[in-house]
């Protein structure tokens, strides 16, 4: 393992966290603003690119690591949380942020979502939710309304939507928030708090898909700050989240559960010491 010694350097600005590779998303996509929120949050926290890792799976949102100057990992569909957990557990010194979408994170990656909340590894999970599979041309995702018509599910899926925030809460996430891509500064502030809070932080970012869900342009008129403050009572948070309409923004729950971090690098034996157990 190489751990570079920190050199005294000038603070890194938000712009420095942008890579020289220009984002390729549909013009109008909410994810553009999420890049801005990431870079602002990283800069505001005083992170350094070499000690920050952004891990993703597959989908529009998962392209984000390439657009940042931090270390990035663009893995397979739905498994970003597992890759990120491995990275963080092996390298507790790094700041690990995971970027996902509603298909990658809630459908194919649904199992890992529950277990990541439960495991409570100290990392931040950002799901850019646009209620649709964009990369594969507009199929319904777990957060798509049941009557949304598409080629793959003509007339709608008829299946109720998944409620990620409540599931995160029930599964044990230590921080649950909702943000809106159209509010990059507010989103950056939420990300700052998410990263600062020990344990598994879940941030859902409503991020419109203007190509397949153009009506989501109206989200900017629907979102509002949550009328309640942050609570550390999961039951209260659950009751509140279950009854909101999905457009209340803010940090809705922040717990105090200690993160899961087995003591990496703290053994005091040599491999050869293990042979004693085999010797006759």
């Amino acid at each position: 393992m190489t751990t570079a010694t920190a050199r005294p350097t000038v603070p890194i600005s938000a712009r420095d966290f942008k890579s020289d590779y220009n984002p390729i998303w549909c013009p109008g996509c909410g994810d553009y603003s999420v890049v801005l929120s990431f870079t602002r949050a990283f800069a505001s926290l005083g992170l350094r690119p070499e000690n920050t890792a952004v891990v993703s799976g597959i989908g529009c949102s998962s392209r984000i690591p390439a657009y940042l100057t931090s270390y990035g990992f663009h893995g397979v569909h739905g498994r970003s949380l597992a890759a990120a957990a491995g990275l963080k557990l092996a390298r507790p010194d790094l700041t690990v942020v995971v970027a996902s979408g509603d298909g990658d994170g809630y459908s194919i990656g649904g199992n890992h979502f529950m277990h990541a909340c439960r495991r409570n590894v100290d990392m931040t999970y950002v799901v850019m939710d646009n209620h649709v599979y964009g990369m594969t041309k507009g199929q319904p995702s777990p957060t798509t309304e049941p009557d949304w018509n598409s080629k793959l599910s003509p007339g709608g899926t008829g299946v109720r939507t998944f409620h990620p925030l409540v599931i995160a809460l029930a599964a044990g996430a230590n921080f649950v928030a909702r943000a809106f891509s159209g509010d990059p500064s507010g989103t950056a502030n939420v990300l700052v708090e998410a990263i600062k809070t020990p344990g598994f932080s879940f941030v859902e970012i409503l991020s419109p898909c203007v190509t397949f869900r153009p009506e989501q342009r109206e989200w900017k008129n629907a979102v509002r700050p949550a009328p309640v403050g942050t609570t550390n009572d999961p039951a209260r948070a659950a009751r509140y989240i279950m009854t909101d309409d999905g457009f209340n923004l803010g940090i809705l729950y922040r717990g105090e559960r200690a993160p899961y971090q087995p003591p990496m690098g703290r053994g005091n034996k040599q491999p050869a010491d293990l042979e004693k157990g085999f010797a006759i």
């Binding site: 013009p27 109008g28 909410g30 159209g182 509010d183 342009r217």
Partner: peptide
Amino acid sequence: GFEAPESGDVTELHYLM
């Protein structure tokens, strides 16, 4: 609003605009 008043709204873009 959410942003500085002169900053364009990302969602108003269109590739054929």
